[in-house]
Design a protein around this nucleic acid. Sequence first.
DNA 1: GCAAAATGTCAATAATATATTGCATTATGA
DNA 2: TCATAATGCAATATATTATTGACATTTTGC
Lengths: 73, 73
Amino acid sequence: MEEIEFENRVKLARVEKGLTQEELANLAGVTRQTIGLIEAGKYNPTLKLCLSISQITGKGLDELFWIKKGLRI
Amino acid sequence: MEEIEFENRVKLARVEKGLTQEELANLAGVTRQTIGLIEAGKYNPTLKLCLSISQITGKGLDELFWIKKGLRI
DNA sequence: GCAAAATGTCAATAATATATTGCATTATGA
DNA sequence: TCATAATGCAATATATTATTGACATTTTGC
């Protein structure tokens, strides 16, 4: 029931492949805006899209996306 | 641009934890039907839900979900 | 410094994930 | 076998992802 937040390394993986947001978007079959919003952590993509990004960048899902650990002091 | 299909091992992971669909659903904060449909491969969950299931079952995203390899002969 | 490319962002709309309810079917255990 | 739990499934409603187009801002290379 906990409200989950997550972080991602999509931008790093994309840049390592020498791709622009638009190129990655085209390869993944989505729009540039969708990739931009995911990189900015502003929303919650579908699994299919995550798997596409994983395949294109050559990174595993767990390398790309993870639950944000609550930084309690 | 390729249309991606995927498979999952959610049911196995759930049963290994001794959970019913309803229990997993409650823990993940979704309905029983949503879990049932995911297990049946009938739809495409959001990343947040995948991460919840991953956390609850103690399995990595890559263990739970993968791209269906086209069985070309 | 300038031009072009890349990215951010907004608003409107479309597509689809998820909720809800209710009932049918299939396991499971006494 | 019987009662109950667990799962499947359908219809409809809602929430959120994703699209599209347009324009602003930032980066990058010359």
